[in-house]
Amino acid sequence: MDSVAHRLSAVGAGAALELRGVTRLFGALAALTDVTMTVRPGERRAVLGSNGAGKTTLFNCITGDFPPSSGTIRFFGEDVTRFPPYERIRRGLRRTYQISALFPGLTVQDNVYLACRGVSRGRFSFLRPGVNDALMHATETLVQAVHLTPVKDQRVAELAHGQQRQLEIALALAGAPRFILFDEPAAGLSPAERLELIEILTSLPAHIGYIIIEHDMDVALRVVESVTMMHNGRVFKEGLPREIESDPEAQELYLGGGHE
């Protein structure tokens, strides 16, 4: 609790993400209890923890998919606790989902186009985009960045799992993200696809910070500079990757329940 969190909260106002006492209840179950954490702009952090530790719920609270039962969330200094998800997204927050949440009836290109449109103006536009539409170019670029150009006219329902995971990431990169939440992006990927993922993550512009939930320590610890460990809905350790790697308690807890 005291070490990294305190040192970082000293920077306070300049934080990209600042959670204070965030608690989330599902009926009687407390999926998150009194989570306090601060993440700097541009910081890259991993959240580790066994299944059911509350990692996804943490993301859901930050994006507003499920608002916290109590506590406050600040995004670049602004209190967004009561904001609907779309307001947070328009301020530069992005996320991916652990279980791909795509639009199966639309093509890959349309999926990405929607992501670009969602964070720009003209969401209600009745005019079809022309050939020189800026967002269409942005879409092309993103599709290319996640290596999906060959399948861009296919419906998402027809894609392979790995391609869907790539698309999931593309949706989170649309527009001008300032902070991204990756929920187990490597789940179910082949080793080759994992390398591609690592490449995408490490080549993100330096000002974009992210939190990544990842069971695979090899992936996680290669792409982050700090680590938060969660257990039973609480944060129980924060530190640098090598501190966590060598911490016996973390090792036991994590390896004990993580790889189900």
Partner: peptide
Amino acid sequence: QGVRDNARRMAALGF
């Protein structure tokens, strides 16, 4: 059509 397919994701894209 995005809303039809996945309303929650649409909200998470800014809609």
